[in-house]
Design a protein around this nucleic acid. Structure first.
Lengths: 146, 146
DNA sequence: ATATTTAAAGATAATTTTGTCTTTAATTAT
DNA sequence: ATAATTAAAGACAAAATTATCTTTAAATAT
């Protein structure tokens, strides 16, 4: 569904949201170990997320690291996709047609439409914070070690 | 959602199902023009689909080309994904976790589960033939020219 | 038989994605 | 001031995906 880069972005952001605050930042080393992703590659991705649309914040030096502002925690999960430039998955035609609409639908359009709608709503309605809090509650997990 | 290769595979197969039969085959030239895909690349993909699990049939020489047997037309759309080795999209964790289950769910699992279920059902229940017939009826389209 | 038509097969190349490594810059603690 | 710690930046490389081109093989029609 998503690229590796976006999967890492989603996992990392949710993890950071859960583990850190402006007062308690978290290092790329800890993050990549926790979500089981290649460290340098993940660093690049987080770097991008600190620029693009400020989903993630960072600080250098001792006690530095990554964190999410309280404002950022309230962003929809979709904003991660947007920052990764992969937001189009939630809109595009399942057969990859450039033009696929109500007036000119692909053969799967009618059936796929409600599914796409739910998928989009999921990413729009759920905030980063909401997902993170479930980890805190111990009901869900984000470790990738089998 | 799917790779370019799989998008082409889906479009091509549905198109072939609609336009051809054992008696009336269709050339790669016609196919790639109709679905707006790179010809040689599409040829490779169809070649693979004639082997993997026989979704598509072919014949060389004059009046040769690609076609679907009546049996193949009754296959679920999912069989195209399977032949393309991209069937896992219908099952895998949206965050890319290796382990994501009821007992150890990712933060999106509960909400994504019903969506994934519908998506899978769509690809399992719809046959290639059903999608093709809608094109014949003129209610849907598969051309990719904007 | 020969020429023609078509897919199959194989080689190659361009592009994108994924990943690593090294150097630099900023911040903090001593 | 200096050393230590951390992310940022940049160069590079491996792998996968997407794409093209050429040659071969099979089938048909003449």
């Amino acid at each position: 569904m998503f690229s590796k880069a976006t999967e890492y972005a989603l996992r990392a952001t949710i993890f950071i949201a859960q583990k850190s605050s402006k007062e308690n930042k978290i290092s790329i080393d800890e993050i990549s170990k926790a979500i089981d992703s290649p460290q340098s590659f993940t660093a690049k991705i987080l770097q991008a997320l600190t620029k693009e649309n400020k989903v993630i914040s960072s600080a250098r030096g001792p006690n530095g690291g990554f964190f999410l502002t309280e404002k950022a925690k309230k962003l929809p999960v979709r904003s991660i996709l947007q920052a990764m430039g992969e937001d189009d998955v939630l809109d595009k035609c399942v057969l990859g047609l450039k033009l696929c609409s109500e007036t000119q639908p692909c053969p799967m359009h009618a059936q796929y439409k409600p599914i796409k709608k739910q998928l989009k709503e999921l990413f729009v309605n759920k905030t980063i914070e909401q997902l993170a809090s479930e980890i805190k509650d111990g009901v869900v997990f984000i470790n990738n070690k089998k």
